[in-house]
Design a protein around this nucleic acid. Structure first.
Lengths: 143, 143
DNA sequence: ATACAACTTCAAGCGAACTTGAGGTCAATA
DNA sequence: TATTGACCTCAAGTTCGCTTGAAGTTGTAT
């Protein structure tokens, strides 16, 4: 019976749904770290489960592994980069607006009576809103 | 002076910011279509600009080109798959919630006073909320 | 003591979404 | 008419996030 806080790579994989090969890859990138070896085998601290949940959440939000690494939120060894983290939070809010725009567009298209939605005024209006937001975001991003 | 409705691939690229090579790739996938050739050169209808705006919006929301193709929203030749479009709208709403969860988490981490946010109760609470949402979504997805 | 399942490394492969490069064609301008 | 620059095709290369396979090691159960 292993210590609950000391996990084998297979146990981590089972608990998190992340494959062992992905875990080795993450370790190579520095996203997670094993706390040692038992023979050749990596052993992990129980907190890696939380780290992986956070990594997965970041991935599902569209962040790359590099971005997650650079924020320093998953890897607790080096402190977080608070500025980068705030900036990412803002990016997420921008992204949420994009998603809202596209949701409105899709909901419209799903019920649009026009044969060709491109010739529908309502559709064009929604598309214009989305493009306008994009332009604003680009302008801000460049400034 | 070319007809405003007839565009050369270079003009489309310039108007949309999508590279000519990407446009050829999209055509190969069936996402857009040229309305003919002038010699070897593709010519496009002006509406391709709208189609590309929609494609880009979809891409930035995280959809793959295949998903966009299957919805039938960019390519107006075949009608849209209204069910698929509705389903994608719902996926977007789920995704927006994920982003909201992660935004809250990041905003917290950016200001968390604890040395290690993993040992912060507030952080753990936010992480639990996110993981709970994920579980609910998985349960629904499988049913 | 022996078997064996689970681990190890390292290199190569994969799908998505393009880009790049080589070698060729052609429409428009000088 | 000659040039030239924007286009063309096709094949191969690139990045990301892994997976797969080969060949070897080892902790654990019998």
């Amino acid at each position: 019976m292993a210590n609950i806080d000391i996990l084998d790579i297979g146990e981590v994989a089972h608990l998190t749904g992340t494959s062992a090969s992905a875990l080795r890859y993450y370790e190579e990138l520095g996203l997670i770290q094993s706390i040692g070896r038992r023979g050749l085998r990596r052993i992990f601290d129980g907190n890696v489960v939380n780290q992986l949940a956070l990594i997965e959440l970041g991935r599902s939000a569209g962040f790359t592994l590099q971005e997650i690494l650079e924020m320093g939120i998953a890897n607790d060894d080096f402190g977080v980069d608070r500025d980068k983290v705030s900036q990412k939070a803002e990016e997420l809010e921008v992204q949420m607006k994009r998603l809202a725009d596209l949701t409105a567009l899709l909901r419209h298209v799903a019920h649009c009576p026009a044969d060709d939605h491109f010739s529908c005024g309502n559709f064009q209006k929604l598309l214009r809103i989305a493009r306008k937001r994009k332009r604003l975001q680009l302008t801000r991003g460049n400034s």
